[in-house]
Design a protein around this nucleic acid. Structure first.
Length: 311
DNA sequence: AGAGTAGCCTATCTAGACAT
DNA sequence: ATGTCTAGATAGGCTACTCT
């Protein structure tokens, strides 16, 4: 076999992949071809040989017919540009992530890349595996499906469908609040930002938090150049008058909106280590927020659920 | 003969409705 | 909170065709 020199792993921005995976995007194959091309361009030259990319795709099980459709999609979305070298060989010029995101109509590339196997991009279930890569970027931190829908605009029912198909493991999270059981009636009567309150066996008040999800389909990669890619994208949007209002806070925190003034007044942060918690406290101190929840990981319950203590 | 392609057919997917 | 079902839509495979 001559395939062995082709990359087995690729890195991508799951937020872009999710955009491409939308039925209406008409760039599902084109985007995957772009990801493969980027993986092939190990030197970062900004271009790859068209024949080599075709060979790479076919070695992964892409049919000649698919290749034909995919490269057309990639061209239609400015993800590749054909140029002929003096030698006669055809090269494909590849845009940067930010420019590619702009071409695809993304509002952002997210904050994290993910790494996954190239073969997982091909064949039935690829959308679920790409979704799992997005789940992996949360690194086990609790996040509700509703929140993910707000971020990437994938309906909750579709999220469940994808998770089930990709075998994503879900774990429940419970928070141990500072308040004791005797304050529960007051909390119930006057209301609280905490949902699903109950009295724990140790006498403190507990609250059900969003689930954590885990997968081994993808690894969370470093932050890489997400900031740069987003900056490029947003500059292009501004130039086109397409700039959208963006979140004031990073994706590591969960802003909620106060219905009365539409301002972010509330964040919730989950931290696995004391060092993470201290970093979060510093971050929060700068933000001038009226309300916040901060939790540090405590332990894994017998049931498998994760328990977090309010700080 | 071999490469590329059109069009048909089937598998897969989406997302709402309903059930548990 | 999850699972099941479904109609309608899309993607991908297959085959026969054209062109050189």
């Amino acid at each position: 076999m001559t395939d062995t020199h082709f990359p087995e792993r690729v890195t991508l921005y799951p937020v872009m992949a999710i955009r491409a995976a939308r039925r209406s995007s008409r760039v599902g194959g084109g985007y995957r071809l772009y990801v493969l091309a980027k993986a092939l361009d190990t030197q970062g030259r900004g271009s790859v040989s068209r024949d080599e990319l075709r060979e790479y795709a076919l070695s992964l099980g892409v049919s000649p017919r698919q290749w034909q459709r995919w490269i057309i999609e990639a061209r239609n979305n400015d993800l590749v540009t054909d140029v002929q070298r003096a030698s006669g060989e055809w090269e494909l010029i590849l845009p940067s992530a930010g420019v590619a995101a702009y071409s695809m109509g993304c509002d952002g590339v997210g904050t994290r890349k993910a790494e996954m196997s190239a073969a997982d991009l091909i064949g039935p279930g690829w959308k679920a595996r790409v979704w799992a890569a997005y789940e992996a970027t949360h690194n086990g931190k609790p996040i509700s499906r509703e929140r993910m829908q707000k971020i990437v605009n994938v309906p909750v029912s579709t999220q469940r469908y994808r998770d089930a198909q990709a075998g994503v493991v879900r774990q429940q999270n419970y928070a141990k609040l500072k308040a004791k059981a005797d304050s529960l009636p007051g909390l119930v009567e006057f209301g609280t930002r905490h949902k699903a309150l109950y009295v724990r066996k140790d006498g403190y008040i507990g609250s059900r938090k969003p689930d954590s999800r885990f997968t081994d389909i993808a690894l969370r990669a470093g932050k890489g150049r997400a900031r740069k890619a987003n900056a490029t994208l947003h500059r292009m949007q501004r130039n086109d008058g397409l700039s959208l209002m963006r979140q004031a806070l990073s994706q590591d925190v969960t802003p909620e909106t106060d219905a009365t003034n539409d301002q972010s007044v509330y964040v919730r942060l989950f931290n696995f280590t004391p060092a993470q918690r201290r970093a979060s406290e510093r971050k929060i101190a700068k933000l001038d927020l009226s309300r916040r929840d901060l939790y540090e990981f405590s332990h894994k319950a017998k049931s498998g659920s994760l328990v977090w203590v309010e700080c």
